[in-house]
């Protein structure tokens, strides 16, 4: 603890860490930048997630309005494939479980397990994308294109942007796998997992809106 007053020097060696000398970006252990229990990495990542949430909510909100007013919506949505999408839901949920386990083991500093579960999550992501590509090609072969009608344009728009997010999530996990080889960082794993869960939550709404009803 530093004493104020003229001539008293500030020591940076005290245990209080971040508060005794101001933070120097990139030099302190990550958890020492924090605000009221929120580490800076988590704070920043949730800021980013907030933006992502609004993007997806805007799209979903727009689709709600079109669905309420476009008479052919329900009929068009009955052409989507429930079996494929249910499998995809299971893949994403499994990915969520492995992601949260990776998160858990990273915080417990059991890096081998964390890495294993990250790899599994990433595989879930690529599986999802593979199935999605198969599904798209099947629908396009049946003649359902983005400009077919109001349902299909939202179907391709929203599942497309969700697919991009799954791709991004998988690539983020790939990047994190490389990053933690050099510098084990629990927050990197946490943020990758958070992103995955967010993508999963979005799918939980896309699934009933475009496939089940």
């Amino acid at each position: 603890m530093q004493q104020e007053g003229s001539g008293v020097m500030v020591s940076s060696t005290s245990a209080a860490g971040a508060s005794s000398y101001p933070p120097i970006a990139g030099t302190l252990p990550e958890e020492q930048y924090e605000w009221r229990g929120a580490p800076v990495a988590r704070l920043a990542f949730w800021l980013f997630l907030a933006g992502e949430i609004i993007i997806l909510l805007t799209l979903i909100g727009a689709s709600i309005f079109f669905r309420l007013t476009y008479p052919g919506w329900n009929e068009a949505s009955s052409y989507t494939n429930v079996v494929i999408s249910t499998i995809n839901t299971l893949v994403l949920l499994t990915g969520s479980l492995t992601a949260v386990l990776a998160h858990h083991y990273a915080f417990a500093s059991r890096w081998a397990l964390a890495r294993l579960y990250l790899v599994l999550t990433m595989l879930c992501g690529f599986t999802f994308l593979g199935i999605k590509v198969f599904e798209y090609s099947r629908e396009i072969m049946h003649g359902f294109l983005p400009n077919t009608n109001a349902f299909w344009m939202f179907y391709y728009g929203i599942t497309g942007i969700h697919g991009l997010h799954v791709l991004a999530g998988s690539l983020i996990i790939l990047g994190v796998l490389f990053y933690i080889r050099k510098k084990p960082s629990k927050y990197a794993v946490e943020n990758a997992a958070l992103y995955w869960h967010f993508v999963d939550v979005v799918w939980l709404y896309i699934f009933p809106m475009f496939y089940l009803t």
Partner: peptide
């Protein structure tokens, strides 16, 4: 972020002929 979503939809209108 809502505008980013809108720009995405606008790009779809231009590129994919949605409406």
């Amino acid at each position: 972020t809502p505008l980013i979503a809108a720009v995405f939809l606008l790009l779809m209108d231009i590129l994919l002929g949605t409406h």
